[in-house]
Amino acid sequence: MGDYKEIRCPLEEDVVRGLRMGEAVRLSGIVYTARDAAHERLMELIEKGEPLPFDLKGQVIYYVGPAPAKPGQVIGSAGPTTSGRMDSFTPKLLSLGLKGMIGKGPRDKGVIEAMVKYGAVYFAATGGAGALIAKSIKKVRIVAYDDLGPEAIREMTVESLPLIVAIDSQGKDIYSEGWRRYTQG
């Protein structure tokens, strides 16, 4: 490879629509972190009709629970966690304006259908490449749920975060299609 599309977030509609499954991208701008426990709390707020700790419109959620920062580091290792655990929450967030997710592993049918309906993209980050990914994270601020430790919601400013478009806004899914090109039985 070595050929990357540079994109910025918050994500613009036409940028999302232009991304294709399998494309390598470098993402810069602000992303928000949330994983299992934070998603549960976001859903509770939505159910009660209360405001969320950040505006979802055009935003990207990164499923990550980082390691603590060493002195002099912005953040510790920060690779993706398994996205599938968030599947039951994601369609609701997409309906409220979420435009992108970063994680690892496949998404269920409900998520993919909602991605097509609302025009969103799902990026795969390399699982286990936590030290490498941390290099792209330039600034971190805790936005909510400090008590959750690694699971708190953080606002991260990233520069050239290396990602691959895993599911595009047309619903093309690398996890269901990628292996078919290479399978030998």
Binding site: V64, G65, P66, A67, K70, Q73, G76, S77, A78, G79, T126, G127, G128, A129, G130, A131, L132, I133, A134, K135, P150
Partner: peptide
């Protein structure tokens, strides 16, 4: 990633 982790004494994975 593995080379960075080894050199900088940080975890390979979070």
């Amino acid at each position: 990633n593995d080379q960075i982790a080894r050199k900088e004494r940080v975890p390979i994975c979070q």
